[in-house]
Amino acid sequence: RRRVRAILPYTKVPDTDEISFLKGDMFIVHNELEDGWMWVTNLRTDEQGLIVEDLVEEVGR
C-alpha cells in the first residue's frame, strides 16, 4: 500500500471527515479521491479520515 508522510501539521475543520495530524505523521493511503483528497489511516493515532495531498510527501516503498 502507498504510504505518505505529513510535511506540515494540520488541524481538521470541525464536523468534517478530515483528521488532524502532526508534521512527520505517517499514513497508509486507502483511496485517492477527487481534488487531491485521500482517505487514510494515521499510523500514530490509528485514526481514519480525509487529508489533502498537498500536505504530504511520498515515502519509499
Rank of each mutant, 00 (worst) to 15 (best):
R1C: 11
R3W: 06
V4G: 01
V4H: 03
R5V: 13
A6V: 01
A6D: 00
I7L: 11
L8R: 11
L8E: 11
L8T: 09
L8I: 09
L8S: 13
L8A: 15
P9V: 02
Y10A: 04
Y10C: 04
T11G: 05
K12Y: 02
K12E: 07
K12R: 11
V13Q: 14
D15F: 07
D15N: 13
D15S: 11
D15I: 05
T16C: 05
T16R: 05
T16F: 03
E18T: 07
E18N: 03
I19D: 00
I19Y: 02
S20K: 02
F21A: 03
F21D: 02
L22R: 12
L22T: 09
L22W: 10
L22E: 14
K23C: 08
K23Y: 07
K23D: 07
G24H: 08
D25G: 03
D25W: 00
D25S: 01
F27K: 00
F27R: 01
I28H: 11
I28D: 14
V29Q: 00
H30R: 07
H30K: 09
H30C: 06
N31K: 15
E32I: 15
E32Q: 12
E32A: 11
L33C: 11
E34C: 09
E34W: 07
E34T: 10
E34G: 12
D35S: 10
D35A: 13
D35K: 12
G36R: 08
W37N: 12
W37H: 15
W39A: 06
W39T: 07
V40E: 00
T41F: 01
T41C: 05
T41I: 04
N42D: 04
N42V: 00
N42E: 04
N42S: 07
L43I: 13
L43W: 03
L43P: 03
L43K: 07
L43S: 08
T45L: 02
T45C: 03
D46R: 14
D46F: 11
E47W: 01
Q48W: 06
Q48S: 13
Q48D: 12
G49S: 00
G49L: 02
L50R: 15
I51S: 03
V52R: 15
V52F: 14
V52T: 14
V52E: 09
V52W: 12
E53Q: 12
E53A: 13
E53D: 12
L55S: 13
L55N: 13
V56P: 03
E57H: 07
E58G: 09
V59K: 05
V59A: 13
G60A: 11
G60H: 11
R61C: 14
R61L: 15
